[in-house]
Design a binder for these strands. Structure first.
Length: 498
RNA sequence: GUCCCCAUCGUCCAGAGGCCUAGGACGUGGCCCUUUCAAGGCCAAAACACGGGUUCGAAUCCCGUUGGGGACGCCA
């Protein structure tokens, strides 16, 4: 060790300190919404981009509405999207547990600390009474903030209520002044505290409210950047106040715009699918979903649209998040799906298709061995014509099995015409005589035959297509014939020729 | 009602004072390729909300108006 190491040490320490710790903290009161998924994605991208840590924390303090099934569903959707978490449910971590209901003592301790420090006080008001006051004020057209009744209670009053065993909540005492914070996407934001009421931090049932638990956990879990939805922006000053009262460093904030439906209203069920799980069910590729979501409200700056997960990680910056809300455009998602499908290697497509092919009775293990090259060519031919992965299953059928499903309209249009059966018989003879079904010579042979018989090549082409694949549409006929293979082609022509 | 945020083609974005007769993508229309369908290529229509400033010069900076969104819970 030389003098160098002494200089190097602080650098290393500093670079470690720079590593961000971000988190996604869903409440398990519903499925993973696409908006939540995008928030998770931005956090994940930021962590991965900077070699930081992505924490997943479950905010289940609303015991009434939270459920284990929802937790499972959310984890499953995140996993499907490939947003792996470094700390959280299932993987644990230095700040476990990651379920808030398992951390209640921590919140109570923090609240007691705040009460002792005079930063918070007990409140014996009944929720019903407060709601009534609030409604009355609203009816009168004015805003209502808690009137601090309980802050004004004399020690005797308090003693009597305690003796009566009255339920008490804990309220944070909002000091006068102005709270400011810097938002990484919007810049400087400030709130006059006169508009902020003394908010409840511990409910009368002893459970913490969101404001307390989120701050206590973010402090304890050493979260450095809070990346979350725009709808939290007005909560932020309350939380900044809490950080300060707790004597904790305030993290940086980045509020990302909301995702809207086509009518510019917050995306909801009536706009169609809103949960990630539905898109999974609808056979979208997770990489397409990621790409689409990333570009909703964020831009790397150039003109490129299609990005792999790694490319997104490489380019992600919080500063690239735009300020305005974004409308969810399902058609563009479809386009991304197709683009990613086309870019997926055929082996990968085959791997993902295996369950569906098996279910359809079309799978055989030789796809992985002796037939690997052949099936890859078939997939490459079909994939630019598919919008969804699953569409490849029926498209693959005429290539991999003897079963051909005939489209009635196509049969009538292209196989029932005058002389068609006869033309196909002649064409079958020609094919049988050909040394191979290589596209170019096969096409030449077909055109020569059509010429000899005085018909347009299209007549033979269309008839052959329907006879071989059962549909009026397919990839280029001659590539299809070669890959279907002479045996099956001849056989299918035989059943449709005279 | 109060507070906060936002404002470029129908939609998603580019644009960080002159590079803008505003660029890309989805979608739409047309053309090309072609045996069908895709993919791909080319072309077209399509936007700086409005009004004031600041500046030699503004989509870009400031103010206001309007519009949209969000928050005002013992929900998160």
């Amino acid at each position: 060790m030389t003098g160098h190491s002494r200089r190097a040490t602080p650098d290393v320490t500093e670079s470690l300190a720079m590593r961000p710790r971000v988190r996604f903290a869903p409440s398990p009161t519903g499925f993973l919404h696409v908006g939540g998924a995008r928030t998770a994605l931005f956090n994940w991208l930021y962590a991965r981009r900077h070699g930081g840590t992505f924490v997943l924390r479950i905010e289940d303090t609303d015991v009434e509405r939270s459920s284990d099934d929802m937790v499972t569903g959310i984890l499953s959707s995140l996993t499907w999207l490939g947003l792996s978490w470094d700390e959280g449910p299932g993987v644990g971590g230095p700040h476990a547990p990651y379920f808030q209901t398992e951390r209640l003592d921590t919140y109570r301790a923090a609240a007691s600390h705040l009460v002792e420090a005079g930063a918070a006080y007990y409140c014996y008001c009944r929720p019903d009474d407060l709601a009534a006051k609030r409604e009355a004020a609203q009816a009168a057209g004015s805003a209502w903030t808690y009137d601090r009744t309980c802050h004004a209670l004399s020690p005797e009053d308090v003693a009597r209520r305690e003796a009566d065993g009255q339920a008490r909540a804990v309220r944070f005492l909002v000091p006068p002044g102005i709270t400011t914070f810097t938002d990484l996407v919007r810049g400087h934001i400030e709130f006059a505290r006169e508009h902020i009421e003394d908010f409840v931090i511990i409910r009368s049932d002893g459970h913490p409210t969101y404001h307390l638990s989120v701050v206590v956990d973010d402090v304890e879990m050493e979260i450095t950047q809070v990346v979350r939805g725009d709808d939290h922006i007005s909560n932020t000053p309350k939380q900044v106040l809490l950080y300060e009262a707790l004597g904790a460093p305030v993290p940086e904030f980045a509020h990302v715009p909301l995702i809207l439906g086509p009518d510019k209203k917050r995306l909801s069920k009536r706009h169609g699918a809103t949960s990630v799980g539905e898109y999974e069910t609808q056979d979208y590729l997770p990489e397409a979903m990621i790409n689409f979501l990333a570009l909703l409200g964020w831009s790397p700056g150039g003109n490129q649209e299609v990005f792999s997960r790694d490319e997104l990680v490489e380019r992600f910056t919080l500063a690239g998040i735009s300020g305005g809300n974004a409308v969810f455009n399902a058609e563009k998602l479809d386009w991304f799906n197709q683009q990613h499908l086309m870019r997926l290697p055929s082996e990968e497509i085959l791997r993902r298709l295996r369950p569906a092919l098996t279910a359809a009775g079309l799978w055989r293990d030789t796809f992985l061995t002796t037939e690997a090259g052949w099936i890859a060519r078939v997939i490459d031919l079909l994939k630019p014509r598919a919008r969804k992965l699953g569409q490849l299953v029926p498209a693959l059928a005429p290539f991999v099995s003897d079963e051909v499903v005939y489209d009635e309209a196509a049969v009538i249009k292209h196989l029932k015409g005058d002389g068609v059966a006869d033309h196909l018989a002649a064409w079958r003879e020609v094919l049988q005589a050909l040394p191979t079904l290589e596209p170019a010579p096969t096409e030449a042979a077909l055109r020569a035959l059509a010429d000899a018989r005085g018909i347009k090549p299209g007549v033979l082409i269309h008839a052959t297509r329907v006879a071989v694949v059962g549909q009026a549409v397919s990839p280029g006929l001659f590539e299809v014939l070669e890959l279907v293979g002479r045996g099956r082609v001849i056989e299918r022509l035989r059943t449709h020729s005279s």
